[in-house]
């Protein structure tokens, strides 16, 4: 059977690289004595597939993996058993059965929602930059690629952007602003939160001294291009 699993990584676990997570999950599931299916060959690996890599240092409650099992395990039991064997910071949030022969997660999802934490001079600075950003159709940012630097229109990679709340920074004149961002993230292209911040500074010079201090991934989706409707991995 194949289970689709939602994971959260927080605290120290946010410093795990993609490979670290892969290795750690393998070990976690082995400790939990769950019936993993292994690949063939001299160096067998559990058959797991990951949605998309998240930058080291970012936290998340929207990581997804598919795991092949040799025996049936009730999803709730899988989650409970796995959670007894995870290192601190890594949590299995949910699991559901998916068709064993379905497409790979990686090819299915193309969008991610983030909560970005900014240290800014004021809420207005961020709100103005967001408004200016959304008002335009083309915002080009230089992107380093394999074939040199090229300009990318990042505006079309941003599906939603909104200030969600703010707090005064302890002891300082600045404020901490939370920004909700829905960005393209998949095999067709991805917009990194850092690049988004660059774009905001470009449309609104007052934004330039704003610092992206935290990236938290909320969820990943498949986006219907015409309607803009977002589907969670469960429904794919």
């Amino acid at each position: 059977m194949k289970l689709r699993i939602r994971l959260a990584k927080q605290h120290t676990a946010r410093f795990f690289s993609h490979l670290d997570i892969q290795r750690t999950l393998e070990r976690t599931l082995r400790r939990a004595a769950l019936p993993l299916a292994y690949s063939q060959g001299f160096n067998p690996h559990p058959r797991m597939s990951f949605a998309s890599a998240l930058a080291t240092g970012a936290s998340s409650e929207g990581e997804f993996i598919d795991v092949d099992l040799t025996d049936d395990v009730a999803p709730a039991e899988f989650v409970a058993r796995a959670n007894r064997c995870t290192p601190p910071g890594l949590t299995f949030v949910d699991a559901r059965e998916v068709p064993a022969k379905g497409d790979s997660l990686f090819s299915l999802v193309d969008t991610a929602a983030y909560r970005l934490t900014l240290s800014a001079a004021s809420v207005a600075v961020v709100a103005d930059a967001v408004a200016a950003f959304l008002a335009q159709d083309v915002i080009e940012v230089a992107k380093e690629g394999k074939r040199g630097t090229r300009l990318v229109n990042i505006r079309e990679q941003v599906y939603d952007l909104a200030v969600e709340g703010s707090l005064p920074e302890p002891g300082g004149a600045r404020v901490v602003v939370n920004l909700r961002a829905v960005l393209q993230s998949g095999s067709q292209g991805s917009l990194k939160p850092e690049t988004l911040a660059e774009g905001l500074a470009q449309v609104s010079p007052a934004f330039a001294d704003t610092v992206l201090v935290g990236t938290h991934r909320l969820m990943i989706y498949r986006r219907e291009p015409r309607t803009g409707a977002l589907q969670e991995p469960w429904d794919l």
């Binding site: 410093f15 400790r31 064997c85």
Partner: peptide
């Protein structure tokens, strides 16, 4: 400082066992 150094997990702890 952790986000500013190479391999921050070298310093964080939080391992199993």
């Amino acid at each position: 400082v952790l986000p500013q150094v190479a391999k921050p997990a070298r310093y964080t702890g939080g391992e199993w066992n």
